[in-house]
Design a protein around this nucleic acid. Sequence first.
DNA 1: CTAAATTCC
DNA 2: ACCAGGAATTTAG
Length: 402
Amino acid sequence: METSQGYSLFFFHAYEKPLKLAEALSSRKMILFGKLKLHLLSQRKHLPRTGLQNQLSTSEAMLNSLQDLHPLPKIILEYRQVHKIKSTFVDGLLAYMKKGSISSTWNQTGTVTGRLSAKHPNIQGISKHPIQISKPRDFKGKEKETVTISPRALFVSSEGHTFLAADFSQIELRILAHLSGDPELLKLFQESEKDDVFSTLTSQWKEIPMERVTHMDREQTKKVVYSVVYGAGKERLAACLGVTVQEATHFLERFLKKYKKIKDFSQTVISQCHHAGYVTSILGRRRPLPRICAQDQKLRAQAERQAVNFVVQGSAADLCKLAMIRIFAAVATSPTLTARLVAQIHDELLFEVEDAQVPEFAALVRRMMESLQQVQTLELQLKVPLKVNLTVGRSWGHLAPL
DNA sequence: CTAAATTCC
DNA sequence: ACCAGGAATTTAG
């Protein structure tokens, strides 16, 4: 059939009866590559393809490259964005709602790193930032109407209660500073404890004053730092920064030169993993990585990145879980406090607490979380302080610093 | 770069 | 009508 044009026979074999042509053409690939043959019109030599079946891809990059040829690719991209948002944040949440509230299922043992995960719904994946969607412009109207959805603002505390969120700031970076002992990184946390670290880093290597650092700059820095730490290549970094591969390479060298011991730390973790076959988090949890010995270069490189990632991300997960159970214990034994944990989003704990108890509870949470810098019984003694951010509000989407 | 869940095809 | 795997979306460092 159409195999010569590069798409699979899946749609035909998946059904007992052959599909009618009209049904078959409802597939985007059928339209894009079958009917319109846009891939043949494209100037590019190597079009994006999927992994195993080597089909032509309908990825974002592909559709972008095709959008000058036909209006359809852009429409597909818009449709994807809008539909995803409606189905997960509107229809999806409504489907899980029981008596005006929803309750996720939490899996405490489901991830390789030791983080928690949630499903039905995945409350950890609910968009943080409001999403703007432009309505299809009607032919008469001149104003482009937009509707904004802020999914987290849908969650409101019950009467007489407020949400209190407590999160560790830059927990993984602090753990990395501790484990690597990198002097520059340690300095960043030990002396400038008042400032925001990612803003400081942004102003340092973009060579702009602190007050000119925008939220976008800060978010980009955050992404870049973690990418680089966990072993991103120059191509990935270039794409992330929106610069050329040369510039990205230069940036990478400069970063690893300034924070020299990060590389040493990675190498140590990798060689330990190679000898033992596993890596260990700060509280002694293990992750086996048998592929660290693989002959295949790609598989081995992946295992090496996973090893480094686990030691840091897994250690952060250890501390977050420890914070959680210690706060549980403190609340359980308190004669007065009645706060309850509503959600856990990795390094953030979200509580619901009686309005009158907010100050007392906030103090308790801060004390519990910061005290994890040293825990004698676990022989834990971090070289960096742990910083805790507290925010409060009636709506999850509009929490303000305490 | 590393972790996840969800939705659609 | 369902399954399976993949791609793309979001989240978190």
